[in-house]
Design a protein around this nucleic acid. Structure first.
Lengths: 187, 187
DNA sequence: TCTCCATTTCAGAAATTCCTGAAATGACGG
DNA sequence: CCGTCATTTCAGGAATTTCTGAAATGGAGA
């Protein structure tokens, strides 16, 4: 691996983290390299930079494309494929969230739904099903929320993030206003 | 593995998903089993239910305890260890978020901080560092937001979730009110 | 159609992770 | 101190994943 020290550290870190993220070392390194590179790279350049086999790079790029985390670019008068990551870190975040949801939560949600349809054959099964219902309910709430916020424009999303826990104050304020307009029983 | 069909399906699914979640099959299965069980189980019962070795269960339980996802319980006049998962699914969610952050984002954040301290030695390094700064900024915003919301009581958190994208309407309303009280330049 | 070159596929080697049985450790009552 | 029983450790075998080189595929121009 021949890279400027700063880039090398970054790339190596992503390689190591890869395993905790369900991607392998090479895939992590390729992503990191593309992320910090000033321009698109072709497979051969990645091979040189990382010192792994051509075929490994090919497979890694394929996986990253399946994740929508790298983009294929073409350079005029060059028939090799060039790759980049999206510039916009917010877009990267959205993509990551979307793909992880697709792979990590959707299958579970669908299994839970299926199991909840079945009729329990014993007291233990009845209890198990109740627990599954709790899990299903929580996951569904979370994914509904996610479906909502992912539609927000980045600017609004950023505003929301910046607000942090202060949203609760807003909530309180809202309750008060609503309470004034339409007083609750026992209020 | 000898389990009621409903439970078995659930346990097998968690086993398979395990790999996508950075835990292994047995660990996933143990967790799933404890999650749906009506009461605490000891290691031997888990061995019988899952059909894996005693030592494997021991290691799996150890890992789950490291994740704070299972609790050790003692039953009077029985010197074996019994295990459960927390009842409250919200608590489980919080624990999961906390532990994943600890393992998956904190190390990256700290590497990024370190690399951002260094002086770039070339134009490419300068660019790489700028990209790292973008990533660092985003992650920091997210973790700050997370630190904020994790302090909310569950009830408030649920309210926030239920609100979903409607928070933006609240934001707009707030802007308007604030605008009335303290009109902006050019408003 | 043929050649050239980029890319992909794939069988098997290398590396890593997972799992097991056996032995070690620990904790309690006698 | 023992004996007993529960748990943990750990070396090495099993299973899985990752990586490679060689061969196959594909596509553009001659």
């Amino acid at each position: 691996m021949k890279l400027p020290p700063l880039v090398q550290s970054f790339v190596l870190h992503f390689g190591e983290m890869g395993s905790r993220w369900g991607i392998n070392r090479t895939v992590g390194q390729i992503y990191a390299l593309l992320y910090v590179s000033p321009g698109p790279l072709n497979a051969e350049q990645i091979v040189d930079a990382l010192g792994v086999s051509r075929s490994n790079v090919s497979m890694g790029l394929k996986e990253l494309q399946a994740w929508n985390l790298v983009l294929l670019k073409h350079i005029p008068d060059d028939r090799r494929d060039y790759f980049t990551t999206p510039d916009d870190v917010w877009l990267i975040l959205r993509t990551l969230a979307e793909e992880r949801k697709k792979r990590e939560v959707d299958p579970t949600l669908s299994v839970l739904r299926e199991l909840l349809m079945q009729t329990p054959g014993s007291e233990d099964e009845r209890h198990a099903q109740a627990r599954m219902a709790e899990m299903h309910g929580l996951i569904e709430r979370l994914t509904n929320w996610y479906e909502d916020v992912k539609r927000l424009e980045t600017e609004r999303l950023a505003a929301l993030l910046a607000l942090g826990a202060k949203v609760t104050r807003l909530l309180e304020a809202k309750d008060k206003v609503v309470g004034l307009v339409r007083p609750r029983k026992g209020g």
